[in-house]
Amino acid sequence: MNCTDEIKCSEDRFEKLKLKNQLCFPMYAASREILRKYTPLLKQLDLTYTQYIVMMVLWEEKSVTVGDLGKKLFLDTGTLSPLLKSMEKKRLLTRARDPSDERIVRICITGEGEELRNRAVDVPEKMGGCLKLSEEEAATLYNLLYRILTH
């Protein structure tokens, strides 16, 4: 084995460390790009992306515990607590301890939160136009990403 062979062998063992071989990188970069595209749409609603996904849960369920919300959104209570406090100040939701179990905090949508739904109704369609994926590609991507999240 000559010197160039040794260098090549040495470099081969680092092949998996190349950025082009990382599945996590395009997922990370795509996530940042999607959030960047959401920002101007959500700014009009005075919401961050995380506040928006909380509102989506509340628009659907009207009331949810902090624990269940965290499970649905893959967020811990340390992230949710300040976020929910901020949203309560905006009068989008209320927080209250469950009378049957003081350890449980229940989140409920307010009238202002419900009204915001009317202003947000076009956001998914506008975002869909940004992604340049067919319905089949989007469904496949959705299913693959949820498989990663749930395993």
Score class of each variant (00 low, 15 high):
residue 106 R to A: 03
residue 18 K to I: 02
residue 19 L to W: 04
residue 136 E to C: 03
residue 105 V to F: 11
residue 37 K to S: 06
residue 131 L to F: 12
residue 56 M to Y: 01
residue 108 C to S: 15
residue 63 S to M: 12
residue 72 K to H: 04
residue 34 I to A: 14
residue 91 R to K: 15
residue 123 V to C: 02
residue 87 M to K: 09
residue 34 I to C: 10
residue 91 R to V: 01
residue 16 K to A: 14
residue 112 E to A: 08
residue 119 R to E: 06
residue 97 R to G: 09
residue 15 E to Q: 11
residue 72 K to S: 09
residue 90 K to V: 00
residue 148 I to M: 11
residue 64 V to P: 01
residue 32 R to Y: 05
residue 108 C to D: 15
residue 111 G to H: 06
residue 23 L to W: 05
residue 23 L to Q: 08
residue 148 I to G: 00
residue 151 H to V: 03
residue 13 R to W: 10
residue 18 K to L: 14
residue 114 E to H: 07
residue 142 Y to F: 14
residue 35 L to C: 08
residue 13 R to Y: 12
residue 71 K to A: 11
residue 86 S to G: 12
residue 115 E to N: 08
residue 37 K to Q: 14
residue 89 K to H: 10
residue 96 A to V: 04
residue 3 C to R: 11
residue 27 M to S: 09
residue 23 L to N: 10
residue 68 D to Q: 13
residue 99 P to H: 12
residue 64 V to A: 03
residue 76 D to K: 13
residue 55 M to T: 04
residue 27 M to A: 12
residue 48 T to C: 05
residue 6 E to A: 11
residue 8 K to S: 06
residue 64 V to G: 01
residue 48 T to Y: 05
residue 45 L to Q: 09
residue 4 T to H: 09
residue 99 P to G: 08
residue 62 K to M: 05
residue 8 K to M: 07
residue 122 D to H: 07
residue 79 T to W: 04
residue 135 E to G: 02
residue 73 L to Q: 08
residue 124 P to S: 03
residue 6 E to F: 01
residue 13 R to T: 11
residue 133 L to D: 07
residue 96 A to I: 01
residue 29 A to H: 05
residue 135 E to R: 10
residue 46 D to L: 00
residue 28 Y to I: 05
residue 102 E to K: 13
residue 33 E to D: 11
residue 29 A to S: 10
residue 36 R to N: 08
residue 39 T to S: 12
residue 116 L to A: 03
residue 73 L to G: 04
residue 133 L to A: 06
residue 22 Q to V: 00
residue 68 D to R: 13
residue 46 D to G: 01
residue 82 P to K: 05
residue 37 K to F: 02
residue 30 A to V: 06
residue 122 D to P: 02
residue 108 C to M: 06
residue 55 M to Y: 04
residue 146 Y to V: 00
residue 148 I to T: 03
residue 28 Y to W: 10
residue 85 K to S: 15
residue 135 E to S: 07
residue 72 K to A: 12
residue 52 Y to I: 01
residue 67 G to F: 10
residue 148 I to F: 14
residue 32 R to Q: 14
residue 90 K to L: 12
residue 131 L to V: 08
residue 125 E to K: 07
residue 151 H to Q: 09
residue 38 Y to W: 07
residue 47 L to Y: 04
residue 103 R to I: 01
residue 2 N to M: 03
residue 19 L to I: 10
residue 51 Q to N: 03
residue 55 M to A: 07
residue 122 D to C: 01
residue 46 D to V: 00
residue 150 T to F: 13
residue 18 K to Q: 14
residue 113 G to L: 05
